[in-house]
Nucleic acid binder design. Structure first.
Lengths: 121, 121
DNA sequence: CAGTATCCGGCTTGATACTG
DNA sequence: CAGTATCAAGCCGGATACTG
């Protein structure tokens, strides 16, 4: 595949190539981790917090908001009064990311097996 | 694919899953962009700077150093006195990322075509 | 339960100028 | 040519406490 120089405008920001746009949406420390857990199906806030044990509440909240804003996930509220039940799930757009996320996860697993150390299985 | 909760130690840092490790290595604003250009073959510093038109010299330099430190690219110097000739290329480890990078680029292109605006082709 | 409020340190990125 | 030096801004992410 060839990658020519080009400038693309997306959401009023300039990007030097298509890869930049993708990384704007799924880059950062947590986004792709959250998304990959949602591939398996919708999850509640507390479920995500448990699955991603090293994330803080604040950061999880902020990342979920950004993902929702970018159209990758939807937020659905099931109760009106506490205790609240909120579920997050992938949109169609988010689902289109599955091949990318799986490729990332697969590569990450290969790296982890070769050079990492599993502390808690 | 199932994604169980686990903690992995890599380079003395803790990660909640394999995806986190992958994002540590290729996440951020520029790394995957640099890497994808290197799939086509080794590039000089100035070539990368032209290809990634919106990156600054300083940031390109820092990112290249980080990628080298992580073992994804190698730096080769061809001259001893100015004008210098330096080439960057993927290591075997970096080459193993090609499927991931191509998946990201492909998805990014689909997004760009659907929702983006090409300013300069 | 599912967040928000507040405070804050540090890393990332940028602009500009300079050098071997 | 291929960077480094310096200064500075801004966002990311963490700790802790609090709320509808």
């Amino acid at each position: 595949m060839e990658h020519k120089k080009r400038l693309i405008k997306y959401n009023d920001k300039m990007f030097s190539c298509a890869t930049s746009i993708a990384m704007e949406l799924i880059g950062g420390k947590w986004k792709s981790v959250i998304l990959i857990y949602l591939i398996d199906g919708s999850k509640r806030y507390s479920e995500l917090r448990k699955l991603i044990s090293t994330i803080t509440e604040r950061t999880l909240s902020l990342q979920l908001k950004q993902l929702e804003k970018d159209g990758l996930i939807t937020r659905k509220v099931y109760t009106k009064k506490p205790p609240l039940k909120v579920e997050y799930s992938l949109t169609k757009f988010g689902e289109s990311l599955a091949p990318v996320l799986n490729a990332i996860a697969q590569w990450g697993m290969a790296v982890a097996e070769e050079k990492g150390e599993v502390i808690e299985g």
